[in-house]
Amino acid sequence: MSTDASSAFSSIDPTAAGAAPAAAQRPLAAEPLPQRPTPAFVGASWAALLLGVAAYLIGLFNSSMELNEKGYYFAVLMFGLFAAVSLQKTVRDRAEGIPASSLYTGLAWFSLATALALLGIGLWNAGSLLLSEKGFYGMAFAMSLFASVAVQKNVRDLARFPRPERAEGDAGAARDDRR
């Protein structure tokens, strides 16, 4: 009976029949297989980026600020977008084992903190803006930074996968054959 019981349970518990434990059969830190971002996530990321940047820029265009103030807020937006994407790339490079210097990583963190501080200080001292306008700029800025990181992640993830081949009868495929 014990032989039958051990053979019956060996299909449930691999260690019951003397098999090596599952942890010994595969490495402990197995890398998950990269997955292609879904078209919905890619589209939502781009939509959020375009909406955030457009809202911020439309707000600047419609504001009664002096041109030099508008230029300041535009430069802060561009600096913040670059800093957020740069920091995301650096952090991801390190997570994937791609060398990134500590100096550049520190500069990326400093740049993002500086962009946030410049926006915060600028809005705090903007006496001509209503509190609701200040909140609007802050939220549009935050949305744009977050979305830029998501778009950069998608671009990098999609670069790992080959582009789908075109169908035989596709007009684009015929155009490529004539070159």
Rank of each mutant, 00 (worst) to 15 (best):
R166H: 04
E96A: 09
A47E: 11
A24M: 08
S7N: 14
R36M: 13
E133D: 12
A159H: 06
M143Q: 10
G138N: 11
A147V: 03
V149G: 05
R166E: 09
A140G: 02
P14N: 09
F141M: 09
A48N: 05
D170V: 02
L67I: 10
G172R: 11
F9S: 13
A16Y: 04
M65C: 01
T114W: 10
R160S: 05
Y56L: 02
L67E: 14
S45T: 04
A167W: 04
G106A: 09
A108M: 01
L118E: 14
N125Q: 14
T3R: 15
P27V: 05
A29Y: 09
V76R: 00
D93R: 13
D176E: 14
D13K: 06
E96G: 07
T90R: 12
G71Q: 07
R166V: 11
D4K: 08
G138L: 06
T114Q: 14
G97A: 06
E165V: 01
L87Y: 00
P164F: 08
K153E: 11
S144G: 04
K89I: 04
T90M: 09
S102K: 14
L129V: 05
F79W: 04
R160I: 01
I58H: 09
L145P: 00
M1W: 04
E31K: 07
R175E: 14
R163I: 09
M78D: 15
L107N: 15
P162K: 05
R178Q: 10
E168H: 06
V76Q: 00
G169F: 13
Y137T: 04
A173C: 03
S11F: 15
Y72H: 09
A140M: 02
G169V: 08
D4R: 13
A19I: 08
P32M: 06
V76Y: 00
M139H: 06
E31N: 05
V42M: 06
G122D: 00
S64A: 14
R160Y: 08
A44M: 08
S11A: 15
I12V: 11
A44H: 11
A150I: 02
F136C: 05
L130G: 13
G106R: 08
A23F: 08
M139N: 10
L77C: 05
A19S: 11
D4C: 13
S63N: 03
S101I: 07
A142E: 08
R163W: 06
S63M: 04
L87P: 00
P37E: 04
A174D: 11
R179S: 10
A47R: 14
F146L: 03
A5E: 12
F79V: 02
F9E: 10
R94T: 03
W109N: 10
A95T: 02
E96Y: 06
R26N: 10
G138K: 02
S10M: 13
F79M: 12
N68C: 05
T90W: 00
F61A: 13
L33V: 12
Y104V: 11
G18S: 07
V155P: 00
S45P: 01
V91K: 08
A100M: 12
L67V: 11
